[in-house]
Write a protein that binds this DNA or RNA. Structure first.
Length: 276
DNA sequence: CGCGCAACCTGTCTGC
DNA sequence: TGCAGACAGGTTGCGC
């Protein structure tokens, strides 16, 4: 579910509601959500802080606090972050924790599969180090170029799809947008990265941006669990070119989309349009 | 270092 | 209907 467009959709909705608000209480209903911190320690650390901004890096939320620390969250597979204008409306199903705000609203984290995380990172420098260790360039930043992608693929025999899923190469792409971008670029997902030409890397860079932009415009893809900050489904799943479309016609040639397995993930592509 | 894969969890769907 | 097994959008750590 939550790849860059889904996280960005929520971030855009939350930013105006959270910025300038003070956290009046924090409830942790699943200790795993904040581990290795303790629920009490997590709650005490955040209570009284003001949220300065709602940022994003890759698939991570980065809520900057007034003391320079950041509250960093990740939805992993099935997490949802819901904005509730009335704190009393906090959902009970799969609730992992909630922040109560001085506006009377609440931010609730739900997650059936319990992979999602929340943690406080003490300083801007520590946040930079945290992301630098895990994430490559943002797909829309100037330093993510076809040239860079070409350089990063040299001597790499891993399938290009596996490389796109590696967050240190480029941040924010997951299984959905990897399939969609590779189709747009006409590249087979199992193609060895080192075999891509410079022109293909240029095309792939553009295809990644186009796929992510389309996803953001559609307010994300809701295959199953994903909801935006107001509990509403996205619509990008209705525009998928190949992902989850096994046996359905390829929008490029009309031939059947095939399902295979690449990098351990369910992978969808068109054998005719993706020969590169 | 590069790569593949299991593990972390729960829910849902498929096939017998 | 019941049940075992496969599979699901992500990330990390381990073994080779």
């Amino acid at each position: 579910m939550p790849e860059l467009p889904e996280v960005e959709t929520i971030r855009r909705q939350l930013a105006p509601m959270l910025e300038g608000r003070r956290i009046t209480n924090v409830v942790v209903t699943d200790p795993r959500w904040v581990a290795p911190a303790s629920p009490r320690g997590f709650s005490n650390r955040l209570t009284g802080s003001r949220i300065e901004s709602a940022g994003r890096r890759g698939k991570y939320f980065d809520f900057l606090l007034d003391d320079g620390a950041s509250l960093v969250m990740h939805l992993r597979m099935t997490g949802n972050l819901l904005y509730l204008s009335e704190a009393s409306a906090t959902p009970s199903a799969h609730l992992r924790g909630a922040l109560l705000l001085d506006s009377g609203a609440a931010l609730a984290f739900t997650d059936p599969r319990r992979f999602g995380t929340a943690e406080v990172i003490a300083s801007p420098e520590a946040v930079d180090a945290y992301f630098a260790a895990r994430l490559g360039p943002e797909p829309f930043d100037d330093d993510f170029t076809g040239e860079r992608l070409h350089r990063d693929t040299r001597n790499r025999k891993t399938p290009i799809k596996a490389l796109l899923l590696d967050q240190r190469r480029v941040a924010g792409i997951g299984n959905i947008y990897a399939d969609e971008a590779l189709h747009r670029a006409g590249i087979a997902p199992h193609r060895r990265a080192a075999r891509l030409t410079r022109a293909q890397c240029d095309a792939l860079r553009d295809a990644i941006r186009d796929s992510l932009t389309a996803g953001i415009d559609a307010k994300g893809a809701s295959i199953d669990d994903f909801r935006d900050a107001y509990g509403v489904q996205g619509s990008f799943q209705d525009q998928f070119l190949v992902h989850r479309r096994e046996g359905l016609p390829c929008p490029g040639c009309g031939g059947p989309v095939v399902k295979t397995r690449v990098a351990g993930r369910g992978t969808y592509f068109c054998k005719t349009c993706q020969r590169g």
